[in-house]
């Protein structure tokens, strides 16, 4: 059973449509990246899922149930900015959050240690830097050992060391079997830690699925025909293969094409050979998630 299911979710603000029928599901144990440029609907999606924004249409289900306070307590979430009482210390804020979550107050110490805030726990929130605030928000999400973490731009305001620490923390939690839904701009980070991604653009879902399959659709094969092969023959042969598309010339007499899911370079080599076309070279050019993201959101 998916931990979170969004079905045909939509949201409008006046005449602006922020989400257009978004459907996706987050399976237990996955690390799901929600990607999209500013204004793509990531935070709106998470806000609706977490019960602080009203959907204009569609449904949300947590743990197979209608959203309610009980199932939200099984979620640890950071949405946009860290939200705490400025006149309270880090510890007081976490104790308050633990009360709301019905979590054991003793988990406050663990959360402070995990996020490196132990020595600053008695300092007021208002005196914290953005990075410290973000750490406190992360500490708050860990209270009560939630089954899923929902993190909206968790590395905002963190320095490179802080970003690496968050990435390590997310990786560690994921390795422990924690389900994580993470919205981020940092595609390199997402590619390193996520098992699944969804790409949003202006409220539309552009792609969703396991990271390897999203990236596979972005991979291109580079073909180097033998010197005696005419271009027309190659084009004709490729056109006869319905699982090969977007054949285009590359540098130094090479060509590139995209293979449909389920077909590999070996299939292409075999199919061309059967049509009497010999290749001098064949390789796969992998694209980064960033390149694929830019392609999808162009």
């Amino acid at each position: 059973m998916p931990i979170l299911e969004l079905d045909n979710l939509s949201k409008t603000y006046g005449s602006t449509t922020a989400l257009k029928g978004l459907t996706l599901s987050v399976e237990p144990g996955s690390v799901y990246g929600l990607l999209g440029p500013n204004g793509s609907g990531k935070t709106t999606t998470l806000g609706i899922a977490l019960g602080v924004l009203r959907a204009s249409g569609g449904t949300v289900r947590w743990f197979g149930q209608e959203p309610n306070a009980n199932n939200r307590r099984r979620v640890g979430a950071l949405l946009e900015t860290p939200n705490f009482f400025p006149y309270l210390s880090a510890r007081q804020n976490l104790l308050l959050a633990a009360d709301v979550k019905r979590a054991d107050p003793r988990t406050v110490d663990q959360a402070l240690d995990l996020t490196g805030l132990g020595t600053r726990q008695h300092d007021k929130f208002r005196g914290f830097s953005l990075g410290m605030k973000q750490r406190l928000a992360l500490a708050s999400t860990l209270l009560g050992n939630p089954e899923i973490l929902v993190l909206d731009e968790p590395t905002n305001g963190l320095d490179p060391q802080g970003i690496a620490e968050v990435r390590d923390l997310v990786t560690r939690l994921a390795a422990d079997g924690k389900t994580i839904l993470i919205a981020s701009h940092l595609l390199d980070e997402v590619e390193k830690v996520c098992t699944h991604v969804a790409v949003l653009q202006r409220g539309d879902l552009r792609a969703a699925g396991p990271v390897h399959s999203i990236l596979a659709t972005a991979d291109r094969v580079i073909l180097r025909p033998a010197p005696d092969t005419s271009i027309a023959t190659l084009q004709q042969a490729v056109a006869a293969l319905p699982w090969v598309s977007d054949l285009k010339p590359e540098a130094a007499g090479a060509y590139s094409a995209v293979l449909a899911t389920g077909h590999g370079p070996a299939d292409l080599n075999r199919a061309l050979f059967e049509q009497g076309i010999a290749l001098a070279g064949l390789e796969v050019r992998h694209r980064s998630l960033e390149a694929q993201f830019l392609e999808l959101t162009r």
Partner: peptide, 20 residues
């Protein structure tokens, strides 16, 4: 204050109901 600090929002996220 709860609106300004966005703590109503955070407490709903953390599992409080609006009624509570």
């Amino acid at each position: 204050d709860e609106f300004q600090f966005r703590t109503f929002r955070q407490q709903v996220i953390d599992g409080a109901s609006v009624a509570e």
